[in-house]
Simulated assay, not measured.
Amino acid sequence: MKLSILIPLYNKEKYIERCFKSLLTQDLSPDEYEVIVVDDGSKDAGAAIVQEYSEKNTNIQLIKQKNQGPSAARNKCLAAATGDYVYFLDADDYLAINVLKSLIGLAEQNKLEILEFNTKQIPEGSELIEESSTKNTKDLVVKVKDGISYVADYSFRNEAWRYIVKRNLLLTKDIKFIEGTLYEDAIFTASLFLNADRMAKVNMDIHRYIVVENSIVTSKDRAHNLKFIKGMINAIEHFHGLIENLDTSHSDYTKVVKNLKGRQQALVFALIIRTLKFRLLSFDELKEILMKLKTLGAYPIDPKIGGVGQGKTAQFYNMTFVPIFNNKSCLYLGMGLMKIMP
């Protein structure tokens, strides 16, 4: 088995069939890849749709569990996987047609543990883009790097659907999704990349990311946003641990430390923005969090490290918001003003 496509499913009946249609129009034979779906206690007909597909396609497997969150579902998918490579795909996204054979071929030929590729962002309700814009894969350049050099040169995006990964790497390094928290993709991806010996990024059009309204990322719900705050703190802690465990003798050590610290600062900035915008925390709660972040070296925000915005946006943030956020008196005053505003 060359590839296991792993899909956590929760209340996605509107999208799962579109996802499956893209997976069944690939240029791998059914005995070369499998699709494993873990239904995480869905309350809609999504699991029933998957069941219908599994009855007609021997390489599709449905596993059901009580609601435990996407990380638990992904981990259960991984436990059931048998492919040499695994790919974590979201149920509301899809792939371009006939791209997997070339993708797996590149990974195998170059003996890669991780291969990253391109995605296209598509608003919900827009016309499907089924054809890949990559026509001649023979001309693609594959530069193999170890994980630390890769992060130093390319940085990384958080999402696990941006790359395929050798299943054996996950098993030998015991890397799984942390359950019960948000920002699990960021922690998983950083941990994975920094443990890789051979990885690459290829300019190949593979994935379609659908911007879904009222998703957990765009939700304004207070409870969800409190989970985001806790998830940010957890991610900042894990990035601190990754920094502590980095090989100090590596030639790109300093660049990667700066990158990870920049990630921490981006999370701190986002945490404070959410706190103000949604009136989420009390003064004492925020004070306790900031003290913890200081011990992790993530607060106050240091503009020289970066991570907060890009280009002119970064310059604007660092001249306006960052000085306010770094000054606790100004920050608490802002909290007070936000709480009395409609």
Rank of each mutant, 00 (worst) to 15 (best):
F88Q: 11
S29T: 13
L296P: 06
I206Y: 03
A186D: 05
L9W: 05
F193K: 00
A72W: 10
D139W: 03
S29C: 02
A266Q: 11
S215N: 14
P70D: 06
I216W: 09
D27K: 00
N225R: 15
G180K: 08
V86L: 09
A91P: 06
R274S: 11
N158R: 12
S42D: 03
V256S: 09
G307E: 07
D185P: 00
N225M: 09
D44Y: 02
T313W: 10
E237K: 15
A47R: 02
S251P: 05
G46Q: 05
E131H: 01
I164C: 01
Y317T: 00
F156S: 00
N59C: 09
K43D: 11
M232N: 13
L112S: 08
G231D: 12
V212W: 01
V322A: 08
L194M: 10
S133M: 08
T254S: 14
S29Y: 04
N59H: 15
G105V: 01
Y53L: 15
G311E: 08
Y183R: 14
F20D: 00
C77S: 05
L281A: 06
F283M: 03
K56D: 13
A196Q: 03
K21V: 08
A47S: 15
P342L: 14
S155W: 05
Q26D: 03
Q26A: 05
H250A: 07
D252F: 06
E17Q: 13
A73D: 02
K173A: 13
T295R: 06
K43E: 14
E55Q: 15
L333R: 15
S249I: 03
Q265G: 04
N168M: 02
L115Y: 01
A270H: 07
V35L: 02
T137I: 05
D252G: 01
H240A: 13
E244Q: 13
V144I: 14
N327Y: 05
D92F: 07
N59L: 10
K138N: 14
I289M: 10
Y183M: 13
N110G: 07
F88A: 10
L333P: 00
K76F: 00
Y150G: 06
L170P: 00
A91R: 04
